[in-house]
Amino acid sequence: EPLWIRPDAPSRCTWQLGRPASESPHHHTAPAKSPKILPDILKKIGDTPMVRINKIGKKFGLKCELLAKCEFFNAGGSVKDRISLRMIEDAERDGTLKPGDTIIEPTSGNTGIGLALAAAVRGYRCIIVMPEKMSSEKVDVLRALGAEIVRTPTNARFDSPESHVGVAWRLKNEIPNSHILDQYRNASNPLAHYDTTADEILQQCDGKLDMLVASVGTGGTITGIARKLKEKCPGCRIIGVDPEGSILAEPEELNQTEQTTYEVEGIGYDFIPTVLDRTVVDKWFKSNDEEAFTFARMLIAQEGLLCGGSAGSTVAVAVKAAQELQEGQRCVVILPDSVRNYMTKFLSDRWMLQKGFLKEEDLTEKKPWWWHLRVQELGLSAPLTVLPTITCGHTIEILREKGFDQAPVVDEAGVILGMVTLGNMLSSLLAGKVQPSDQVGKVIYKQFKQIRLTDTLGRLSHILEMDHFALVVHEQIQYHSTGKSSQRQMVFGVVTAIDLLNFVAAQERDQK
């Protein structure tokens, strides 16, 4: 057995438009009618409502009807409940999964919650491996369901041993009777949507819809739904939504950006999952974080739909894509998950301010006199920076000697690579993860907040409520011999709460 199987392995699926269902090699399930009293909570997966979006479509000038398939009504709160249950049931049916076995899954959280929910009911041990950027709410729900959680670096490539995929496979090879159901490759993922989600949409719309818009992560949702719609409703256009920084969209030119990270969760990847059939997507749109969270908040405030950030991405694209539809036509959007997962993220004004998705003037509360002053007023001194090749031991000596707790790590040209902190280095040394002679590049981390000289002290204040420091950066445009230009970030300084307090105190003292 291989040590790991690539999540982007070539698909062996034989589905073709027009091929009889009787030739399918898979076990198919028909939607079942729910009894009045459910035998367990797993029976509350599927049969989610279709809700008309009344205000947002009109606000953006849509002539067509805009409908939302509300997947956050599933038992675990997301569309991923469907595939989690289906993968477990299919693994039980073919004898792969037996009582007492362990389920391991690399996930952005929602599939993990679905699997942990099913594992709690069915009696399996469950280990979820997820990147650090995923919300604390997801972690809390997983723990409450009895799952064990392993976190991995957000910026690790999918084929790196440190990625959530790599760590999951390492655990599988170490733990007896453990299984990775593997949402990236498992046919049960798109089949769950082909058999149930798509049929529900067709039934709820009486077979009449002209466009379907869905955000894409593993691709199982859009693949399964689109294949069924292509068979039953061939005139329906399928629109895929991919965040900026991901590479799922086609044509490839759409993916060209210097951005590699994004805040919206559960969609987009740096590889093409095996289950994603991009041939059934008629057109791709890219979405960005700001519009995703703005539209998610709009869905909550104006439509009462308590959905997550990827739902915002989907609707932001839908109001663009559906401009081509006329009166009497219908566009369906998939709202994948609930706001429950993001209470401390985009639902929080403070978080939105820190990330730059909300401006101070958007909030009406009274601010102190210094709130709208610029960061450049602080008069920061030149920063202490270190090269990635310097040793951890030497870096600790320098920081202690100069009285700093942290320093930016830059390359020879001064471009920011990340940050090192005294606390992080000492804990890594004590844990045996690094040696004093190791290069400081081994303990770089990139989960820090950046701020510009033109940003306000109010925004800085919000950042420092949650973080010990902020890195002050400025952009530099560099022209190359080819005539092309590129933008790079340079370090201007490091600012802490002490710097802000000293500035405010000094100004008030001078005024007296």
Rank of each mutant, 00 (worst) to 15 (best):
254 L>R: 09
497 A>V: 10
363 L>S: 15
397 E>T: 15
258 E>V: 09
456 T>K: 12
503 F>L: 13
404 F>M: 11
242 D>L: 04
399 L>S: 03
376 Q>T: 10
486 S>R: 13
512 K>Y: 01
285 F>L: 12
405 D>C: 01
246 S>C: 01
442 K>C: 12
459 R>W: 10
280 V>R: 13
391 T>G: 01
252 E>V: 10
341 N>M: 04
307 C>A: 12
469 F>C: 12
455 D>H: 11
464 L>W: 08
266 G>R: 14
382 A>S: 09
453 L>P: 14
393 G>Y: 04
424 N>F: 15
365 E>D: 13
404 F>G: 01
404 F>R: 01
295 F>R: 05
451 I>A: 01
447 Q>V: 08
356 G>R: 08
253 E>Y: 06
480 H>Y: 10
311 A>C: 06
320 K>L: 10
492 F>P: 10
371 W>T: 14
254 L>G: 01
352 M>C: 10
404 F>D: 01
344 T>M: 07
280 V>P: 09
503 F>S: 06
383 P>F: 08
392 C>G: 07
432 G>E: 08
270 D>K: 06
366 K>A: 12
321 A>K: 01
280 V>F: 10
352 M>V: 04
277 D>F: 04
282 D>H: 01
399 L>N: 05
390 I>T: 15
361 E>I: 08
468 H>L: 12
456 T>W: 14
401 E>N: 14
266 G>I: 01
491 V>F: 13
308 G>E: 01
459 R>S: 06
352 M>G: 01
284 W>D: 01
420 V>N: 01
450 Q>R: 01
294 T>I: 12
344 T>P: 01
467 D>A: 12
404 F>T: 07
269 Y>G: 01
251 P>N: 06
323 Q>W: 10
271 F>Y: 07
426 L>A: 15
264 V>D: 01
264 V>N: 06
252 E>Y: 13
243 P>L: 03
282 D>V: 11
297 R>I: 06
350 R>G: 12
422 L>I: 14
272 I>P: 05
371 W>R: 10
307 C>F: 06
390 I>W: 12
352 M>L: 10
417 L>W: 08
276 L>T: 12
303 E>W: 04
468 H>V: 06
355 K>T: 04
277 D>W: 01
260 T>I: 09
438 D>I: 09
295 F>M: 11
402 K>N: 12
456 T>P: 15
253 E>C: 06
283 K>L: 09
473 V>A: 14
264 V>L: 07
414 G>I: 10
426 L>P: 01
434 V>S: 01
420 V>S: 14
294 T>V: 11
259 Q>G: 10
275 V>K: 03
429 L>I: 14
296 A>Q: 04
285 F>A: 14
501 L>F: 08
485 S>H: 01
318 A>G: 12
250 E>M: 10
467 D>F: 13
455 D>T: 15
292 A>R: 04
483 G>I: 07
356 G>C: 06
452 R>G: 10
345 K>I: 05
501 L>C: 10
239 I>S: 04
261 T>I: 06
457 L>P: 05
437 S>W: 15
315 V>R: 05
497 A>F: 01
267 I>E: 07
282 D>N: 13
239 I>D: 04
414 G>F: 12
396 I>E: 08
476 Q>S: 07
422 L>G: 10
498 I>T: 15
393 G>F: 12
464 L>S: 01
493 G>F: 14
400 R>F: 08
322 A>G: 07
353 L>T: 14
341 N>I: 01
334 I>K: 06
357 F>H: 09
509 R>C: 11
267 I>S: 06
386 V>D: 03
400 R>T: 01
277 D>C: 07
445 Y>L: 11
463 I>N: 04
417 L>K: 01
439 Q>H: 14
283 K>E: 13
358 L>V: 09
328 G>D: 11
390 I>V: 09
285 F>I: 12
241 V>L: 01
485 S>D: 09
294 T>Y: 14
314 T>Q: 14
414 G>Y: 08
332 V>D: 01
245 G>D: 05
255 N>I: 06
510 D>L: 09
509 R>I: 07
295 F>P: 13
371 W>Q: 12
367 K>W: 13
451 I>N: 11
283 K>M: 09
506 A>F: 13
255 N>F: 07
416 I>S: 12
291 E>G: 04
483 G>R: 13
245 G>P: 01
326 Q>Y: 15
398 I>G: 14
403 G>C: 12
429 L>E: 01
510 D>G: 10
313 S>D: 06
493 G>L: 12
419 M>S: 11
347 L>T: 01
407 A>K: 01
268 G>N: 03
484 K>T: 01
265 E>H: 01
428 S>A: 11
440 V>R: 01
493 G>V: 10
299 L>I: 15
500 L>F: 11
375 V>M: 09
422 L>T: 07
495 V>P: 15
487 Q>F: 13
314 T>I: 14
413 A>D: 01
270 D>V: 04
280 V>K: 09
372 H>G: 14
243 P>S: 08
280 V>L: 13
381 S>A: 15
436 P>D: 09
479 Y>P: 05
441 G>P: 05
440 V>F: 06
322 A>M: 01
407 A>T: 14
460 L>F: 14
333 V>T: 14
461 S>A: 01
253 E>V: 12
278 R>L: 05
478 Q>S: 13
307 C>V: 01
275 V>S: 05
391 T>Y: 05
495 V>K: 04
412 E>R: 06
282 D>M: 06
415 V>S: 10
477 I>K: 01
428 S>F: 10
334 I>C: 01
486 S>T: 14
365 E>A: 09
282 D>Y: 15
472 V>Y: 01
281 V>A: 08
362 D>A: 15
310 S>I: 10
309 G>V: 05
478 Q>G: 12
357 F>L: 10
495 V>M: 14
455 D>W: 08
303 E>I: 01
444 I>F: 04
410 V>I: 14
486 S>G: 09
354 Q>W: 14
414 G>R: 13
317 V>M: 13
510 D>K: 14
242 D>C: 01
376 Q>Y: 05
334 I>N: 05
400 R>G: 08
366 K>V: 13
434 V>I: 15
512 K>I: 01
414 G>H: 05
312 G>W: 10
341 N>S: 06
341 N>V: 01
399 L>Y: 13
333 V>I: 13
284 W>A: 01
293 F>C: 04
271 F>M: 06
369 W>A: 15
461 S>R: 05
295 F>V: 10
479 Y>M: 14
242 D>V: 01
346 F>L: 11
411 D>S: 10
453 L>V: 11
333 V>R: 05
